[in-house]
Amino acid sequence: MHEWKAELYDDKLGFVSQYGRGILEILNVQQGEKVLDLGCGTGDLSHEIAQLGASVIGMDLSEEMMERARIKYPDINFISGNAENFSLDEPVNAVFSNAALHWVKNAESVISSVWNALEEGGRFVAEFGGKGNVEMIVKAITDVLSQDYSVDANELNPWYFPSIGEYSQLLEQQGFRITYAVHFDRPTQLEDGENGLEHWLNGLAADVFFKDFSESEKKRIFTKIATHARESLFNGETWIADYKRIRVVAFK
C-alpha cells in the first residue's frame, strides 16, 4: 500500500485539491445533503463541501492523512476506510471523489461499495486519472529502472487509468445511469520550480517504485528520471505533468 506523507502532500502537492474545485461545481451540493468524500486525503475538499451546507463524512485508507484532516477540520467526521470494501451506517445523497480512485485497481468493488452507500436516486461524482495519465513520467521511470537497475516498473505500477468506455461499462453493469462523462487533458504545473518533479516522485511514487532503494540512491534515480523527462515536461522554469483526467456523474 502507498504510504502517504501528509505534510508533503499539503505543502508540495496542494494542486490536487485546487484542481478538485472544478469537480465540486459539478457535484452541486444542496443545503442539508449527506455527502461521502471518498479518498478525502487531508480534508480540504471535505471542508469546502461542508461550507456549502452539507453534512460530510470524509473517508481515506491512510491513517496519517486522516490524523492531519482531523487536526485541520475538527468539526468534520473523518473515518478510515478502504474504497474497495466499505459500508456506511446510513445511505448518503452523494458520493464524491477527487484524485483517489486511480489508486484502487479493483474498480468493480469500489463501484459496488459506492452503489450500496447511496440512497435511491443518489449520485456518484468523481474525477481521477484516465487512460494516458502521467504517461511521460511513467515512461521516464520505466526507462531508468529498466536500463540502469534491471527493474520492471510495470510490475510495480500501482495505478488504474481506464478509458472512459471501460469505466462507463463498469458503472452501467452495476446499474448506474451515467449522465456526464468526459476524458480530458489537464497539463498540471508542479509546485516549486526545478524541484517540482522530485516532490511529485517523493509524494506519489517513491514508496511504490523505489521502496527497495536507499534515500541517496533515490536521489540519483530522481535526477536520472528528470533528465529523461526534461525535454517533454520542463518548460525552462517549471515542470508540467501530463495529466489526463476522467470526470463522471452517475445516478443510482
Rank of each mutant, 00 (worst) to 15 (best):
V110W: 00
G122V: 05
I57A: 07
I49D: 00
R123M: 11
N235Y: 12
D60Y: 05
K219C: 10
N133Q: 07
F209Q: 00
E119H: 01
V110Q: 01
K139S: 11
F124M: 09
K252C: 01
V248P: 02
P158N: 10
Q51K: 15
A107W: 07
E63W: 09
H2G: 03
S163E: 06
M66V: 12
N98K: 09
A250G: 04
L201Y: 06
R68D: 06
K34E: 06
G165Y: 12
N116M: 09
E127P: 08
R245N: 09
A181Y: 04
C40P: 01
N85D: 13
A140N: 04
Q173A: 15
N82R: 08
L27W: 08
K252N: 03
L156I: 13
L201M: 14
A153I: 11
D11C: 09
K12V: 09
L201I: 09
V151W: 10
L38K: 00
M65L: 04
K105L: 05
R186M: 07
S146I: 08
Q169G: 12
E119N: 05
F184G: 05
S150C: 15
I240P: 01
D192P: 01
T223R: 14
F234S: 03
Q173L: 14
M136S: 15
L36S: 01
A117I: 00
F234R: 06
T42G: 01
W200F: 15
A50L: 01
V95K: 00
W239A: 02
D89E: 15
G53N: 04
A117V: 00
E194Y: 09
Q31A: 14
N93V: 02
A226Y: 05
S62L: 08
F86M: 11
Y167F: 14
Y167E: 07
T238K: 13
P187Q: 03
I23C: 11
N195A: 15
N195S: 15
K219P: 08
L101H: 09
K218R: 13
D75V: 05
N85R: 11
Q30D: 10
I79P: 04
E90N: 14
D37V: 02
V208N: 09
L8M: 04
L27D: 06
N157F: 15
G22E: 10
A54G: 07
V56E: 01
Y149E: 10
E108C: 05
V104E: 02
L197S: 04
M136Y: 14
